[in-house]
Design a protein around this nucleic acid. Structure first.
Length: 194
DNA sequence: CTCGGGATTGAG
DNA sequence: TCAATCCCGAGC
């Protein structure tokens, strides 16, 4: 039994599709983590697609390793890694097993102001209490405490290049970042890059 | 086994 | 502008 108003959750078939499509359609959906029976949730307003072996910005670019293993696994699971020894980043795995792909969740609009800042991949995992223990976890099983609810309303979606992947050459140019341009909770403001 | 860097953040 | 801080991938 879930604590959501609607007992409706994105299923595996949602994630088994084109990574760009999933990244785009996740905008407006609600990421939920239940901690000690409490609902920690936010509306997804920023995502990035990491798709396939050839994507030089992807952790999967140099083939399967112990870290990126979830990216090669079945869709609808979490891929969580530690960055700079400090922050956790949450990805949702897409596509079929064997094809490495995932969507990085970069910003949420907190459903509850007590949640704390959620603008930025490291901030939202801290607010929701997500860490390496969640790496590889299923999001689509009824018992999962980490899952995504469908968007309540359709919203406009803008595309930009991905953040922080300048090392990836031509792949850094691809507009694989998706945002709700109306949101005040983006990690990097529109029109700006790092 | 050592070595180096990272899909970031917050402080100065 | 820069340090924090640690996992993991590359190389010997």
């Amino acid at each position: 039994m879930r604590c959501g108003t609607f007992d409706l959750v994105l299923d595996r078939s949602f994630f088994a599709r084109s990574t760009l499509r999933v990244a785009r359609e996740l905008i407006g959906c609600v990421l939920v983590h239940e901690v000690r029976g409490r609902r920690r949730a936010g509306r997804i307003v920023e995502t990035e697609a990491y798709d396939g072996f050839r994507d030089a910005a992807s952790h999967a670019h140099r083939g399967p390793t112990s870290r990126n293993a979830p990216m090669f696994g079945p869709p609808g699971r979490a891929y969580v890694y530690l960055i700079y020894g400090v922050h956790h980043c949450l990805n949702l795995v897409t596509r079929e097993p064997g094809y490495p792909a995932a969507v990085l969740i970069r910003a949420l609009e907190p459903a509850d102001e007590r949640l704390g800042p959620c603008h930025g991949p490291g901030r939202l995992t801290r607010a929701l209490g997500i860490d390496l223990r969640h790496d590889g976890l299923e999001l689509c099983t009824p018992s999962s405490r980490l899952y995504v609810e469908p968007a309540a309303m359709r919203c406009r979606v803008a595309r930009t290049p991905r953040i922080g992947v300048d090392y990836a050459g031509a792949w850094a140019e691809k507009a694989w970042r998706f945002v709700d341009p109306a949101s005040r909770h983006l990690s990097v403001k529109l029109g700006r890059r790092r």
